[in-house]
């Protein structure tokens, strides 16, 4: 439970960082890379979600 964790740490006097900071997910569209999925248009988001891995 994140809230409890952070409360526990704060009780011990520790400073917390990272609240509401997301992970960066770099993906390729058309050949270019894009630093974050948030900028993908709806269709490309749907496509990225559908991508399956190809076993070697």
């Amino acid at each position: 439970m994140p809230a409890q964790n952070s409360a526990a740490v704060q009780e011990r006097g520790g400073r917390m960082v990272g609240k509401s900071v997301g992970f960066e997910r770099t993906r390729r569209i058309t050949g270019y890379l894009v630093g974050t999925l948030e900028r993908f248009n709806n269709a490309k988001r749907a496509e990225e979600k559908d991508r399956v891995k190809h076993g070697a």
Partner: peptide, 17 residues
């Protein structure tokens, strides 16, 4: 996150980092 164990949007302590 496999390194610091936080979920997206969660905070982690500076101590731990």
């Amino acid at each position: 996150c496999p390194r610091c164990g936080r979920r997206e949007g969660e905070a982690v302590s500076v101590e731990k980092l």
